[in-house]
């Protein structure tokens, strides 16, 4: 007789512990932001005004909606609506792709204006604006990397759902991927107002 070791609550708690370390990671960057904001308040307003609020707002709506679709996917698998669960997973991934395409256009625009780390244009603008954009590229870049990882994770789990390896009886993998995805959303909830909306 084979014995199945299984502890879904433990698995979820482990994921939460990992997410706390992720929060600490991003908090380091937000702390740097706060210190620079105190030191260069005027420069931060000038720099923030150079970012396009509508790109940021559109991406906020995209991420909030993707958090909704993956949350709905959990309810769907709990109710054994596998087809619906899969569609919601693919919708989440599609929204992740939309987010990254949006980011591509946004960054292309900024780079075309000569705003990128260590660019001559930034050098002329002084240390305050330079620190804003360095932190912006680093934080948003690290966040973008998380979007990519989260989307891949959800894709892998969606394939397992399709193959019947993740079922309405055993779906902790989908729950943990969803938790990771919500963290990506949480980081953006703070990143968006701090970088795009300072006036």
């Amino acid at each position: 007789m084979s014995f199945d070791h299984r502890d879904d609550t433990g698995a979820r708690f482990g994921m939460w512990l990992f997410l706390y370390t992720e929060v600490i990671l991003f908090s380091g960057l937000f702390l740097l932001y706060a210190i620079a904001l105190v030191n260069f308040p005027q420069d931060y307003i000038t720099a923030s005004n150079k970012l396009n609020v509508w790109f940021g707002a559109a991406n906020t709506v995209v991420l909030l909606t993707s958090s909704l679709t993956i949350a709905l996917a959990i309810t769907a698998i709990q109710r054994n609506q596998i087809r619906l669960c899969l569609n919601l997973c693919w919708a989440t991934i599609a929204l992740a792709v939309v987010f990254l395409i949006n980011k591509y256009f946004e960054w292309s625009h900024e780079i075309s204006l000569g705003i990128y780390p260590a660019s001559p244009t930034l050098l002329e603008m002084g240390p305050g604006i330079t620190s804003f954009f360095n932190l912006y590229y680093f934080t948003a870049g690290l966040h973008g990397l998380h979007v990519l990882i989260g989307a891949v994770l959800i894709a892998v789990v969606a394939v397992m759902v399709a193959k019947g390896k993740v079922t309405s009886e055993r779906y902790v993998l989908l729950e943990n991927s969803a938790l990771y995805w919500h963290l990506v959303d949480l980081v953006w909830i703070f990143l968006f107002p701090l970088y795009y909306l300072i006036i």
């Binding site: 909704l68 949480l186 909830i189 968006f192 909306l197």
Partner: peptide, 20 residues
């Protein structure tokens, strides 16, 4: 402005944490 932004962001974060 910053404090309003942070308060609203914290409320959104709480909704995501507790419900989603």
């Amino acid at each position: 402005n910053v404090w309003i932004a942070l308060t609203v962001a914290s409320s959104k974060a709480a909704l995501v944490l507790f419900v989603f």
